[in-house]
Design a protein around this nucleic acid. Structure first.
Lengths: 117, 117
DNA sequence: TTTAACGCATCGTTAATCTATGTATCAATA
DNA sequence: TATTGATACATAGATTAACGATGCGTTAAA
């Protein structure tokens, strides 16, 4: 899996957690590769999560108590299904509020017509 | 100057360059502390650039040929005025396009109602 | 049988940003 | 007059999220 996002790394940085948490909150039970595929599909291949980023992130979020894992064998292949915990749900809401506020603030800073004080 | 942004570091990461370039493209000639103040004012203190981030960033952008510097003494204090170069103007446009596209893409990923394929 | 897609893991590196600290001027204030 | 806060810039070292590279194993298709 060698892939590359159309956005500079720096931009995408800081959004991985909220992407993962939010997808899980909407779709429920998902496994890593499924998350990768779903993001790829939703973004028209504009955001391609790196597996070297995604899998460690899922492990980290689990360690933090935001996700639960269940391992299964499906079609001879190992899968790890993740689910949001209650804490994960709360954190997702917080993240969403923060990121939306941030995007709005950024659009003000970057708006072509800002009024000088 | 000890300050703290209301957003998590990770989110703001990757947006410093475009903030600086875009402010300069709108306001023309500005100095570091002025950029800090302007962003603070525009964002209602939600984004407070750290001086340990801003000044190195200005130096880096200058080294990259995106900015020019002129040093002046104003009111007994040293100021370094920055301006966009042509290359900086082009880069700013590219950054703007990228970040707006990215924000739109993110809003799709994070939208509460995504249609499953 | 080889390639591609599936599915997960991990080690070492990168690089943007932060923290902390330092310098110096000026205005206000206690 | 001494101190604080705002103005103005600088830098060395630490942090840390994410990345690149690599590895393992399965299944299906060419």
């Amino acid at each position: 899996m060698y892939i590359c996002s159309m956005y500079s790394k720096e931009l995408v940085k800081g959004t991985l957690n909220v992407i993962v948490l939010n997808l899980l909150s909407q779709n429920g039970r998902m496994y890593g590769y499924e998350i990768f595929s779903r993001v790829k599909e939703l973004t028209n291949e504009k955001i391609l999560l790196k597996d070297g980023s995604l899998y460690p992130a899922l492990q980290k979020l689990t360690k933090l108590g935001l996700l639960t894992v269940e391992e299964e064998i499906v079609g001879g292949r190992k899968r790890k299904y993740y689910n949001l915990t209650e804490e994960g749900t709360v954190r997702n809401q917080e993240y969403l509020i923060e990121i939306k506020d941030f995007f709005q603030t950024m659009s003000i800073v970057l708006s072509p017509k800002t009024i000088k004080a």
